[in-house]
Design a protein around this nucleic acid. Structure first.
Length: 377
DNA sequence: AAGGTCTGCAACCGCGTGTTG
DNA sequence: ACAACACGCGGTTGCAGACCT
C-alpha cells in the first residue's frame, strides 16, 4: 500500500522555522499537548505539516533537550554504543539523557566518524582497517562469539528503548500515572517476559550455566532447565523468570566460563525450530527480531546482575580479545576513558589482547551500567 | 576583499511498523 | 484480512557560516 506524502498539500511551508512559528507551536503544545500531529498544525495556526511540527518539537523545542558541545563522556558513550548498535540512533539516544537521536546522528557523522577514521579505525565495524589478525580460524570463532553477544545486547537495548517509549506514552496520555512510571515499566517488562518466554538455549546462558554448574553446588543455579519444550535445548526457565544469585566469581569460575564460551560455537538461536518453539509463530524476519528482542531482557538482566555482583565480566571477554590488530595507546585512552581523542595518528603496537579487551570491556561495562537502571530521558 | 570550499546542523524524505476501523 | 492512518527511524539534503586561497 502506498502512502501519500505528509506535505502533499499545496501551501504548506517548508524549510527553517521562524521564531513566530516556534512560539505558536510551543504555546499550543504547552496548553494542549501535541495529541495528533496531523491535526496539530491547523489547530495551532501553522502552515506546516504535522511531521514537520513533530520534528521541530522533538529535535529542538522540547524543554528537556540539552544543546551544545558533547562532553567526553558522551562521546565515549556514543562510540561504545555505536560499536554495539550500529546506526540505531534512537536506541543510542535513550542512553544519552537530553540528547536527540538527530543530534547524535549529526555529531557522529560530522565528528566522531572522522576521528575514528583518522585513527585508522573503521567507524562501521569499529575494527582497525587492516584487520589481518582476525582472519585466522580461531579468531573468527571468537569474533563470531563476540558478534553474537553484541547482537543480544543490541536487541536488549532496543527493547529498553521501546519500554521507555511505552512508558512515556503512558505519562503523556495520563500525567497522573507519571508517579507510577517505574511500576508501569516493570509491569510491561513482566508482561513481556510472561508473554514471550526466554529462548531456551543461548550461548551466553550456556556459558553462565557452565560456570555455575561447575563451580556451584548442584541446585544453586537458578535458571532451571527442567521444563524445556524444545527438544534441541538443554536449558529451561522455571516460571519464565531468571534470578541471579549473589555469586562471587573466582578465578576458577571465570576460567570455566571462558572455556565454555570459547568452546561454545553452535548457536541454537540460529535454529529455526528453536525460534518457532519460542515464538509459537511462523518464521519471519520480523517475528524473529521482535521476539529475540523481548527475550533478550533476560540476557541483559543476567549481565546487569552479574555486574552488580562484582563479576569480572572482563575476564570472560578474554576469549574474544584477539580480534583486532590495533592497540595503540590513544585507542585505549579513548575507549577506556582517556583524555583526548585528538592525539593524531600514531603507530599501533604493543599488547593487542590487552587493548582489545579494554575496548570491548568498556563497551560491555557501559551497557551493563546503563541497563542496571532503565534509561530515562 | 572576493570567490571558492568546507563544515555543521536543521530539516526533509521515504520507508517500516503499529494501530484502528 | 485489508486499507488507511499515524508515528518513528535513519539516510540525505540544503543552507548558513567559517575557513581557505
Amino acid at each position: 500500500m502506498g502512502r501519500s506524502p505528509c506535505c502533499e498539500k499545496v501551501g504548506l511551508k517548508k524549510g527553517p522555522w521562524t521564531p513566530e512559528e516556534d512560539q505558536k507551536l510551543l504555546a499550543f503544545i504547552e496548553e494542549h499537548g501535541h495529541g495528533s500531529w496531523r491535526a496539530l498544525p491547523a489547530k495551532a495556526g501553522l502552515q506546516r505539516c504535522g511531521k514537520s511540527c513533530r520534528l521541530r518539537w522533538t529535535n529542538y523545542l522540547r524543554p528537556d533537550i540539552k544543546r551544545g558541545q558533547f562532553s567526553l563522556q558522551e562521546e565515549q558513550t556514543i562510540i561504545q554504543l555505536h560499536a554495539l548498535l550500529g546506526n540505531r540512533w534512537s536506541a543510542i539516544a535513550t542512553h544519552l539523557p537530553k540528547r536527540t537521536d538527530n543530534e547524535i546522528k549529526n555529531y557522529w557523522n560530522t565528528h566522531l566518524k572522522k576521528r575514528l577514521t583518522k585513527m585508522g579505525i573503521d567507524p562501521v565495524t569499529h575494527k582497525p582497517k587492516t584487520d589481518a589478525l582476525s582472519s585466522g580460524s580461531g579468531n573468527s570463532k571468537n569474533a563470531a562469539n563476540l558478534s553474537h553477544m553484541a547482537q543480544w545486547e543490541s536487541a536488549r537495548l532496543e527493547a529498553e528503548a521501546r519500554l521507555v517509549r511505552e512508558s512515556k506514552l503512558v505519562v503523556v496520555s495520563n500525567p497522573i500515572q507519571s508517579q507510577t512510571q517505574t511500576q508501569t515499566q516493570t509491569q510491561i517488562q513482566t508482561q513481556l517476559i510472561n508473554k514471550n518466554p526466554p529462548p531456551q538455549c543461548l550461548d551466553v546462558l550456556k556459558a553462565w550455566q557452565g560456570v555455575w554448574s561447575k563451580s556451584i553446588s548442584p541446585g544453586m543455579f537458578p535458571i532451571g532447565c527442567d521444563d524445556l519444550e524444545s527438544p534441541t535445548s538443554t536449558l529451561s526457565f522455571a516460571d519464565h523468570t531468571v534470578t541471579i544469585p549473589n555469586v562471587v566469581f573466582n578465578e576458577n569460575t571465570v576460567s570455566a566460563a571462558l572455556d565454555f564460551a570459547k568452546n561454545s560455537v553452535t548457536c541454537e538461536m540460529d535454529n529455526t525450530m528453536s525460534l518457532q518453539d519460542m515464538n509459537n509463530s511462523s518464521t519471519t524476519t520480523t517475528t524473529t527480531t521482535t521476539n529475540t528482542t523481548e527475550s533478550a531482557w533476560i540476557i541483559g538482566d543476567s549481565f546487569s546482575a552479574v555486574n552488580k555482583n562484582n563479576m569480572q565480566l572482563s575476564n570472560i571477554m578474554e576469549g574474544f580479545t584477539d580480534i583486532f590488530g590495533c592497540n595503540c595507546e590513544e585507542h585505549n585512552k579513548m575507549m577506556g576513558g582517556g583524555d583526548s581523542l585528538d592525539n593524531g595518528d600514531k603507530s599501533c603496537g604493543g599488547n593487542f589482547e590487552e587493548n582489545n579487551k579494554n575496548y570491548w570491556n568498556s563497551i560491555l561495562h557501559l551497557v551493563n551500567a546503563s541497563s542496571s537502571g532503565s534509561p530515562v530521558l
